[in-house]
Structure formats: C-alpha cells, structure tokens
Nucleic acid binder design. Structure first.
Lengths: 129, 129
DNA sequence: ATGTAAAATGATAATAGGTATCACTTATTA
DNA sequence: TAATAAGTGATACCTATTATCATTTTACAT
C-alpha cells in the first residue's frame, strides 16, 4: 500500500473520532476539518475498505449488508461460516450473564443484541476450498 | 395483526428454514414451494419487518444498514444506544474466552466477531425522550 | 532530477437491499 | 352483508456501497 495524503487524513480522522463513524460520517468530518483536501466520497469508502481488509482498522458489519431473520426468538448467538456462508446457532450459555455484567460495569441496560461470530465451521475445516 | 395467508406462509417457511435466511432468500423459497401464491417481494419484507417489531421473529441486523468503522482493532465489543445512537466500547473481559469455549463446544474456529449489544446508555436513562 | 509503471484519486454511473406509494383485495366485526 | 381496517402486488424510489475511467501521485530505477 503506497502512501497517500488522503489515506493519512482518513486514518487520522478515524483515530480522533472514537464514535465508530460510518464512511459517510467520516467524509463529512474530513470535509469540515480539511476543506482544502477536496477528498471524494469514493476515496473514503475505498480506503476504509482497504484498511479493514489489511487489518489496520476494524469493520463492524455483522452480516455483510443484508438483514437475516430467525424464527427462534429464544436467547442465542450466531456463527457465520466464512466458507459455506451458513449461519449456525450458538447456545447462549457460551457467554452467560452478559447483560447483567454489562449493567454492573457500565450502567448500560441491554435490551437486545446481535452477537455474530465468524470463522470456519467444523465441516469446512476438513475441506480444501 | 389480522390473519393473512401470505403471512402464514412466511412464518411457516421461516420456521422450516433454520438457515436464518434473508428476505430475498425466503421469497425464493416461498415462490418455489408455493407457486400458486403469487406473493410479492414487498409483502415478504413488510411481514418480516412487522413480525420482528412484534417480537414474533428475530431480526439479525447489528448496525441498521450501514457499516461502521473502528480505529481500535484490539478485541472489544460494542454497545449501541437506541436513543442517542452513539456506539460505546465494551471491554472484552465481559465475555472472556468466548472463542475457546465455542471451539470446545462446537468445533468451530472463530476468526472474527461482531458483538453488538443494544439498549439504553447511562446518560439516556435519565432523560425523558 | 526524471521517466515509467503501479497505485490512488475524484467524479459519477451503476447496483442492490430495502421502503414508500397506491389502487385493489381480503379480513373483521357490527 | 355492509363498512372499515388491514393487507397485498407492482413498481417507483431511496440510499449505501461499488465499479468505471480518465487523470494525478507515488515509488523508485536510472
């Protein structure tokens, strides 16, 4: 990855804005704070995506851009296999009392959650592609 | 909520397809299994949304349709306040060893996660609207 | 310093998931 | 069974994101 002034600005703006902004939000911030830069919105999207792929920043996106629905409303979490794209259920006792703990540590009342873990499922681990 | 044949088909299809389908996927399944129904895609979206609002099914969507980015790549989770829409960091020790536990219980290798908890932050609890 | 190839940019067209609109149909209930 | 509320299908629209492409920057060998 070569150096670019725009990328530097983007990384800098993201590190100074700990609000987990969207690409759009970050674009607004940059335009406001660097009116001379004339940065394009595509550059922001492009760089955020590239930086996330490179592991320099984290993309928070859960289920790759489309909503999924679950008939089971009983508390449980989800695991999405990167290879076969299937979503599996994970028993809630993996992280018991998470709601209670968060309230104790932060005072935040948890009403809902999307806990999506990603990786490779058992089946796909034994496959080549 | 009144009865409708389409809604019945949607609920039935969702309960029989534990793969956590998207609205689009469910629409395809329904067209295939009920070719007589002539259901429209908008009806599927509308009903899934309504059913999720009513708590009859669960919507898995994390961050309401746009990706967010985080400069901090060190393991931690997120809490989104429903009222002020801010995203806060939650320390990873809330659910320690989650990766290890999942591997032990399921054999799935976790490589990444989006753990997004939603509710009301401390500040907003003391506000009226 | 300078030429060249690879990488990056900005503007904008294109795409895709999801929602709004509206005329029409179906359920509910008095 | 008539009146009204709720639901439907078709499709236009919106919005987040990606692709395209001509132009500009960067890296780096000369």
């Amino acid at each position: 990855m070569n150096y670019s002034r725009q990328r530097e600005i983007i990384i800098d703006a993201l590190s100074k804005n700990a609000v987990h902004p969207t690409a759009e939000k970050l674009y607004d911030i940059i335009k406001r704070e660097h009116p001379e830069s004339k940065i394009g919105i595509a550059t922001v999207y492009r760089n955020l995506s590239k930086l996330a792929d490179a592991g320099k920043i984290k993309r928070i996106s859960a289920l790759e851009n489309s909503e999924h629905f679950d008939h089971n409303t009983f508390e449980h979490y989800h695991f999405m296999c990167e290879k076969c794209k299937q979503i599996f259920d994970i028993d809630a006792n993996i992280a018991p009392d998470i709601t209670k703990k968060i309230f104790e540590q932060t005072g935040f009342v948890v009403k809902d959650y999307d806990i999506v873990l990603k990786g490779v499922c058992k089946n796909c681990q034994h496959r080549n592609n």
